[in-house]
Design a protein around this nucleic acid. Structure first.
Length: 430
DNA sequence: TCTGGGGTCCTAGGACCC
DNA sequence: TCTGGGGTCCTAGGACCC
């Protein structure tokens, strides 16, 4: 059960990927800029100038080319190494402000602040301090939203972003009831955290257009019509905190690695190389959280946007006799699976793998007939492989199945240097 | 030519058991 | 003639998030 005293802050970097790029290329400031998804497919981050042009989230880049030419929109490929590193810097700054922090996503963290507010003149003063320090130490602009539940903090953050009057910091707890009502009435119900497209339509069909309408709905009705999730949202909007801060990151229950191809792929051999590559990445993630998995699922897909091409999207799950974390074991299993679902004659666009039935390696049961010597060899080999790949680059040591050419690899035509993580890519100041 | 990737939670319904 | 009901586990699918 939540506490009535709970007071949360949500700190969110504005246009995160775009802002990261601008830190290292200040000449991109005020230039309409998008960062593209993997394979240079969609605009997954947009600068404010681009948003103002009406470009929606995940708009396909090829559809934007005309608009881009007209308004001088610049596009960068995504550089997740850079964003991940910048993200860690922001989080380490936030930890100085509160010991209770949930890193919710690469650009957002929740903080419990009722425990530290006595150290500051006001919640707004704290918010401004956070904003200022992150800007000064990383160059990134953030907004801070605060409220009596995580849902309210999210809402406050949305208001802080959208409305200049807040100057980047909004605490719903510091506003009068009338003012809160005004903003809730002015905000579409679809902006609430947890209310997506479908639920938004259903709520509106029932006469709930704004945040305020939902806030005033009876919890019983919400429970009956929508289930426990919406009931919780209703409570949270009323300042009753139901969602705890999740400070400990739980182990993944499922690990996915997949990519679209840079071009259509037709041969079994190339599909197998990509599947082996994805398995290697998935198993690295598995070992990083000290887990083992018992199921590997393999899938391949044709291009769902090519309506005139024959479609085929099979998947297959392969169970292992013993859960393990060995890339080579999973590679064999996955390729065997691929062999069973592969059909010639299709133009494949994407392949991927999913590891499931994941458990902690430390709790692994020893089987009666396990080959202990074999297991030790496997563990040693994986340790060496991970160490070499960390030190010398991702594909320094890899299974033969992964191949060497990567002809199917993704497009990434305009990626910025790894300014903060590679010595030879550090920015120069002339 | 060109359309991302990776996750979670909840619910409904079927299989199975006693 | 008369043909239960409740519990658990698992899976698929839907909805959401960034």
């Amino acid at each position: 059960m939540g506490s009535e005293l709970a007071h949360f802050a949500l700190v969110d970097v504005n246009n995160f990927y775009v802002s990261c790029e601008r830190v290292f290329q200040p000449r991109l400031e005020r230039v309409p800029l998008v960062v593209l998804s993997n394979n240079d497919g969609c605009a997954v981050a947009r600068s404010s100038e681009v948003k103002a042009l009406g470009v929606r989230m995940a708009a396909p880049w090829f559809e934007l080319k005309d608009l881009a030419a007209k308004h001088g929109i610049k596009a960068l490929s995504s550089n997740y190494t850079l964003y991940g590193d910048m993200s860690e810097r922001v989080v380490s700054i936030l930890r100085d402000f509160s010991p209770d922090i949930e890193v919710y996503s690469i650009d957002e963290s929740f903080l419990r602040i009722d425990t530290v507010l006595h150290l500051y003149p006001s919640s707004l003063a704290l918010g401004e301090l956070i904003r200022g320090r992150i800007r000064q130490w990383t160059g990134l602009p953030v907004c801070v939203g605060m409220g009596g539940s995580k849902t309210l903090a999210k809402l406050a953050n949305h208001l802080a972003k959208k409305h200049a009057v807040f100057n980047g910091v909004c605490d719903l707890n510091a506003l009068s009831d009338e003012v809160v009502r005004h903003w809730m009435r002015a905000t579409d119900v679809g902006e609430i955290w947890g209310v997506g497209r479908k639920l938004s339509l259903r709520l509106k069909a029932m006469g709930m257009q704004t945040v305020w309408d939902l806030r005033c709905a009876s919890l019983k009705t919400l429970r009956a019509q929508f289930g426990v999730v919406m009931e919780r949202i209703g409570s949270e909007l009323n300042g009753v905190s139901c969602l705890e801060l999740e400070e400990i990151v739980p182990d993944k229950q499922q690990i996915i690695a997949s990519r679209s191809f840079g071009r259509a792929v037709t041969s079994f051999e190339e599909l197998a190389e990509s599947v082996a590559t994805h398995i290697a990445r998935a198993c690295e993630k598995l070992r990083a959280q000290h887990s083992v998995a018992a199921i590997a699922q393999v899938f391949v897909q044709t291009n769902r946007f090519k309506l005139n091409e024959p479609q085929y999207n099979p998947s297959i799950a392969i169970g292992l006799a013993e859960p393990c974390d060995d890339t080579l074991v999973f590679t064999d299993a996955a390729i065997a699976g691929l062999r069973r679902i592969f059909k010639a004659g299709y133009r494949y666009k994407k392949a991927g793998v999913m590891l499931g039935a994941i458990s902690a390696k430390a709790k692994q049961q020893q089987g009666l007939f396990d080959d202990t010597a074999m297991q030790q060899r496997s563990a040693a080999l994986m340790r060496v492989m991970d160490a070499l790949n960390t030190r010398f680059g991702k594909r320094a040591v890899h299974s033969a199945a992964m191949g060497n050419t990567m002809g199917w690899g993704m497009r990434s035509e305009n990626r910025s240097p790894n300014y903060t993580t590679q010595w030879d890519e550090l920015p120069f100041v002339k």
